[in-house]
Amino acid sequence: MELELAIYFPNMKRLNEMEDSLRYVDIQKVQSGLAAVLFPMDPNQAEYVANTNALTWLDKLFQQGLEFSRLYFGQEFCQNLIPGPNEIEQSYYYSKQLGWNYTYVTGGYLTNAGMEKVKRNLEKLKEVGAEAEGAEVVFNDWGVLRILRRDYPGFKPVLGRILNKQTRLNMFVYAPNELPTLYTDIQTPLEEVQKNQIAAYADISLNNPEYVERLHEMGVENVDLDIVPQGTKRPEDGWGMTLGYYYPWGFIATARNCPTSGTTNPYRAFQVTEEPCPRPCQKYNCSPAIPPLDIPLIQRGTALMIFHTEYSEPYFEGKIPYERLIFEPYIPM
């Protein structure tokens, strides 16, 4: 099965920048002193360099003759950023104009109010004919799967990455960030325990037939995952599902409280409040610098995102079987 190439945008502003988002600039060619005025040692600025590096890997797929044929559109990580029905409609027609397939991405940890937003968008997509033609909907909340099955059975549900609870070992790829293993009251040699742990971190819940069979019964035939350095154990039949990987941004953790919003109301850094969010994440990043972990971690709004480095190379070299690459030219928030 040929790899399908999708591109993912969280809103129309970003989608309208698609051409520019795919334009490569070689930051390495900027004189180093000069480069520092745009790209200082600030975790927030790592995003731009990372995005251009990702384009070089995307180019490898283009060279193999692949082209984008699917638009992913929507918001996974914050219900305050869910695009409205007008944007949904525009994005759908945008994909039609390009002759692409369409996937509406819904979010995780939706409140009842968030669910209402999703329902309005599904209603709009139904109205414009997306359901009738079998467009996809990524669900990251089990409540969304329930309403899809009940009210919108024409959409193809895709199990989203937020519902994949696999441990992300991305923080422990580089020395000296060793795999943390508390070796207390254990009889087995440490090396063997760690080997078993890494194998366990690759062996995800989907590998249980009881679970995957029920997903099939509910019409779930596609799953999207994050790339992890330990890899993901997948049976030969691929769970009977097509598998998509997001690249280059994965998430390590996410929340409803938000450090970026905490800059405007300190309590929002820790608590969920009734006050509406002014959405400062659309203007600036607010990232933690974690000195022992010299890795590209960026906090965008509610989500701690990580840029996939060397461990993602096999995904571009045909060494790992999967069916879809979901390219994120920006952190999708």
């Binding site: 995780g108 390590i252 996410t254």
Partner: peptide, 9 residues
Amino acid sequence: FNDEDCHSI
């Protein structure tokens, strides 16, 4: 982070 959405160790 949300307990259910924290995937570190």
